[in-house]
Structure formats: C-alpha cells, structure tokens
Design a binder for these strands. Sequence first.
DNA 1: AAGTGGTCTAGACCACCGA
DNA 2: CGGTGGTCTAGACCACTTC
Lengths: 250, 250
Amino acid sequence: MKEAMRTLKSNPLYKLVKESILARIADGEWAPGTFLPCETALAGEYQVSHGTLRRALNELTREHRLTRYQGKGTAVAILDSHQALFKFFQIRSKDGGRSLPTSKNLMIYSGVGDREGATEEESRTFGIEPGAAVIRMRRVRFIDQRPLCNEYISLPGAIFQGIEDVPLETIPNTLYDYFQQRFNVTISSAKEWVSAVRADVDDAKVLEIEAGTPVLRVERVCFDIMGKPVERRVSNMHTDGYYYYSELAG
Amino acid sequence: MKEAMRTLKSNPLYKLVKESILARIADGEWAPGTFLPCETALAGEYQVSHGTLRRALNELTREHRLTRYQGKGTAVAILDSHQALFKFFQIRSKDGGRSLPTSKNLMIYSGVGDREGATEEESRTFGIEPGAAVIRMRRVRFIDQRPLCNEYISLPGAIFQGIEDVPLETIPNTLYDYFQQRFNVTISSAKEWVSAVRADVDDAKVLEIEAGTPVLRVERVCFDIMGKPVERRVSNMHTDGYYYYSELAG
DNA sequence: AAGTGGTCTAGACCACCGA
DNA sequence: CGGTGGTCTAGACCACTTC
C-alpha cells in the first residue's frame, strides 16, 4: 500500500485509503447495508496504522458514505426512505414540522435519438450525447393530502436500463432507495436552483391553483457516490404554508 | 483541565477544549484575524496531547471558526467581504458565474415599545420581549446594475446599539464584515426559508417590475459564533436569469 | 535554521454491543 | 465475556513559511 499507491492521486495516505474504500463500495464489493471488516483488519490489509485507517473511515462517515455503530461495526450507508427524504426533501412548514409527502406517478417513458432523446440541457447535465437514451417520469407529490408539486424527472438511459418497463404503480414513492436497491445507484449529493415562476396550465391543473399563480420552481441535479450526475428533475410547487428550507454554513 | 472540566458539558476531552477555545474567541480574548498560540503551547496550557488539541482545532476549522495556515499558525476566522458573500449570497446565474451585488441603503431607524418595537415574529426569532428595542433597515441590492432585491432587515437593539445613528451612506455594502469590525458580532451560520409570492407595489416600484409578478421571497435568520440569532431579513427578489442556489449533503 | 501546521505510528484504555 | 468502535497519548518525521 504505502509506496505502491503514493503516486496515484493525492499524497496523504489516509486519502488513498479513503479513495480505495470508496472505489470498493462503488464496485459493489461491499453492498449498502453490509458491514466492512473491522478497523484492525482493514488497517492490517492496507498496512496502515489504526489512526490513519480511522481517519479515512471518519471522513467517509462525515460524507454519509458509511455509518458507524459503536460496538457493532461500520456499514456502508443505506438510504432508507426516511433518510433520503430528510436529506433531499427541503420543503417544510414554517414551524419546522415535516409532513411526509406521498406521490403519484403519472407516466414513464424512454426516448432516444430524434424521438425524445436527450435534450441539449440533459446532454449537458449528464455528459452524454444529444439524442442519447433518456428516461422520463412525471409525478405529482402530495403533502397532507393536498397536491404540492408537479414534477418532471429525467434519467440517463444507460444507467437505468429497464426502468421504463416497470409498471407505474410498482415504482415506489421514494425513488432514491429504489434506485439503490434496484440499480445500485446511491444518490449522495445534489445541487438545486430555485426560482419563482408563474404556474403554467399544466401546473395549475395538477396543483389545483390558477394559472399564473407564483410557484417555486426547483431544478435539481443529483449525483451518485462517485460524483457522477444521475438524475435531473424539475419541480414546480405552490408554497402557501410551505417553504423551501436551507441552512448555510455551520 | 482533565478532571476539572470533565463534568461541565459533553464528556470527550477534545470537545471540552473545543468549547473552551470557542468561548475565549467569543469573549474577545482572540479577535478575528489574530493568531492563536501554537499547537504545542495550547496543548501544554490545556494539559492535553498534541493529537487531542489538534482534533479540537480541526473541528473548529471545519466549522469556519478558525483558519489554518501551514507553516504560519492558526488564526481566528475573519469574515472578509468576499467570503461573506460567498457563504451567504446564494443568488447566481445558471452558469454559476457570480456577479457581485452592490446595495443602496434606503433607511435605518430604531423602535421600541409601542412605537415599532419588536413584533411578535421578531421577539420570537431573537428571544426578546415583544416591544423590545429593534433596529430596522431597508436596502435595495443591485446586480449587473439592475435592481435585484428589495430587502428588509431587523436587528436586536441590545446588540447593535448606536448603529441607527450612523449616517446611511457610511454603512457599507457588505454588512457582515461591518458587524464583525464594529460590534464584534461574527455571523457564522444562517437558516433560510424560501417561497414564491406576488410582488407587492413596493417590490414592483423598487425592482422595476409589474406588481403581481412572481418573486422569490427569502426569509433569513443569521446566527453568531455561539449560535445566538442576531439578524433577521426578508428579501424579495425577481429571478429572471438568476437562481437561488443550494447544495445538499455531500 | 527555527518554528509552524500536517501526517503517521504504536499502543493503552474506555464505552458499547451481543451472545 | 470477546469484539467492535471512540478517545487519548507520546513521539517521529514531513511540508511549508519566515528570517
């Protein structure tokens, strides 16, 4: 380990160990939810000290790639539906109470080439050719029984092959843990661009508001554990009583 | 240090050291921009090992309370105007380019008791009595010469005494480094609630748009280094060409 | 060359979990 | 009880800044 990999990428040993472990997770050697070998075993395998190995594990834990359980072991982080919502669903009422949203899938289809293949925007975000295969979904999300959000999702076809043939009803409310279980794609970070726009006729119908009403438009790009963009979605939502919440720095 | 403080709050030694250092910064013992004693000196003072002390300093660094300079020393983090904008100004164009905003202060005044003292909302956010002294500012912020944002700021009067007498023109564009220099109040985190509303007549006039146009409303509460709320602001902004940007997890 | 922070080690002990 | 992660130590050596 020591001298062998030193030149690969970044110098410090703990970073090399960290990247190696991350790669092994991404490769599927350790699936989400399974436990890694214990610290002393890993330290032995990598020929590094306890402290150096722990530093690698701690950073991966801070980045939500691993979960530590004192007395039990260290597991690959699993996206249960609660955690996924907690991390990625930024809408809540002012008092901070979070009602969990439900969703209804309206349609799913794939496109390629001239027939609804990747748009300019999609090819740019996913780093694929214009016209390459993409899969698109439309959903409506509800909160407290009321329609909240009119949602358009795009997925790169190469990664999510076959999802377009899944019956709509069997695609679960919480997509991200489904992605993890079905495609071994773990959503681990996202960027969002928020703006205020007028509800179009489509939004109006779905959200049961008048066209032209101000709605919050959230454009999200999601990244997997290795930082590759794997989902793009646009959500138009009304915000009476609800807010897009964000914490800065810390 | 060891046994003396162990019972104060949280158990681990490095946390006690961390909290002690944080408190000394808040007390003003080390002002923003000044260097702390070197690690060996601090370790000696606290009677802890090098590693334990470093762990405290590293966590404070990760929380942007300290800044480390290899070969030079460790300094109390300073909010230069660039950093403050980088951390707290979430508006940018889609391509990620950030034009720096400028601002124009329209008015500043203080109120207390029946005459514009703390509102219900303000007393709740600041934890002060309704009617207690507050200071309010109004500003317009520009980006690329165009009006972007109509802004209302509230400050607790007890903390920012005297600011209401400062001539409007001399209050700088970037408030947060001014707060730090003038009042030793370092803004270190914030929470924001974003919604979409219709521009009112005031917004319309200031932003040069039509009343009723959708605008992004950002309500922000800022916290100082010890987590005390010290500023509340409401910004209504048009978003043609600009977005409120947010990164989730990581 | 002296002084600072950054990395790494080897080993001790504690706190928690599960059989 | 044995095995896991969590804390803490003492000391070595490296990388960077400044004089």
